[in-house]
Amino acid sequence: MVKWFWQRDKPKRTLMLRSRGDMGDATRVDFAELAPDLGRFLGQAAYLQLGYFETLTRLIRATPELDEKEALARAAGAALSKHRGIVEIIRAQGDDPTEIMRPFQEPLDAFRRKTIGVRPRETLLAVYITAGMLDDFYLALASSYGETGARVATILREDDDTDEIVSILRRTIESDGEWRSLLSMWARRMVGDTLLVARQALRTERLAADEKRVEPVYTELMGAHARRMDAMGLAA
């Protein structure tokens, strides 16, 4: 049986979100109290991956260079694979994936529209930043859902095939100082909107009184974001 490029075996991500003092059991339990119900968690996570896939496929059409098209296709395939994996978990729960995702279509599409830049490189950077931050956030949330959460975490840790995207962006940044300035500013715009999506995924009725419980996760999200920016030669 022939396997397409996104179906081939891939290495697993090793990123673990931890606070500076290591996120121990007590912190995870406290964070779990802010986690949404399982259906909301799965629906949001699945639709986010579908959104990454859609944006990346749009970028393929806007990219003339064949090697870059292939790199984008691999990243899009990785996002689609994650989407399908989470959808299978939803079905295993006895739910209809379409109905579970439907409540998040409008708000997450609105968020995704904010990531579409005037230039394809802006959009590409936005996908890389937002997908990285939100995958990390949902990995942190996954520990709240027992065995089902562990299955989602395994899916999210799969290789997202973005190494070549980083190379494309780095070459762009190194080619022109104006690109460096433009993409730095664009990346900073993305962070606030992305953190807002993460915040809205939590139990908002409890969040106002328990803001400190999620602070270690926000700290680690920003730390991982800074490392991704450094890898491209951009300041966070």
Rank of each mutant, 00 (worst) to 15 (best):
residue 149 G to H: 05
residue 164 E to D: 08
residue 109 D to T: 13
residue 216 P to N: 09
residue 51 G to E: 04
residue 131 A to M: 13
residue 153 A to S: 01
residue 91 R to L: 12
residue 154 T to Y: 10
residue 163 D to P: 04
residue 133 M to S: 05
residue 52 Y to R: 08
residue 213 R to I: 08
residue 229 M to H: 01
residue 187 A to F: 03
residue 208 A to E: 02
residue 218 Y to H: 07
residue 126 A to C: 06
residue 121 R to Q: 10
residue 225 H to M: 07
residue 43 G to Y: 06
residue 17 L to G: 04
residue 38 L to R: 09
residue 116 I to D: 06
residue 157 R to F: 01
residue 38 L to W: 07
residue 119 R to A: 11
residue 31 F to H: 04
residue 105 Q to L: 13
residue 68 E to F: 02
residue 100 I to D: 00
residue 74 R to F: 07
residue 199 R to F: 08
residue 43 G to T: 01
residue 221 L to A: 03
residue 135 D to F: 09
residue 127 V to A: 13
residue 217 V to E: 02
residue 84 R to Y: 03
residue 221 L to G: 06
residue 186 W to I: 09
residue 23 M to V: 11
residue 234 L to A: 11
residue 54 E to G: 14
residue 21 G to D: 00
residue 181 S to W: 02
residue 28 R to N: 13
residue 100 I to E: 07
residue 221 L to E: 01
residue 51 G to I: 08
residue 174 E to S: 00
residue 104 F to W: 07
residue 51 G to H: 02
residue 124 L to E: 00
residue 171 R to D: 03
residue 2 V to F: 02
residue 3 K to P: 07
residue 167 S to P: 04
residue 52 Y to H: 07
residue 36 P to R: 00
residue 128 Y to I: 14
residue 174 E to V: 08
residue 163 D to E: 10
residue 147 E to H: 10
residue 143 S to N: 05
residue 68 E to G: 12
residue 126 A to Y: 01
residue 217 V to H: 08
residue 23 M to Q: 00
residue 111 F to G: 03
residue 9 D to A: 15
residue 155 I to A: 09
residue 96 D to Y: 00
residue 144 S to E: 05
residue 187 A to K: 02
residue 105 Q to I: 14
residue 25 D to L: 14
residue 66 L to S: 11
residue 206 R to C: 01
residue 122 E to M: 07
residue 22 D to L: 15
residue 161 D to P: 11
residue 102 R to D: 12
residue 183 L to R: 10
residue 149 G to W: 03
residue 89 I to T: 01
residue 224 A to S: 01
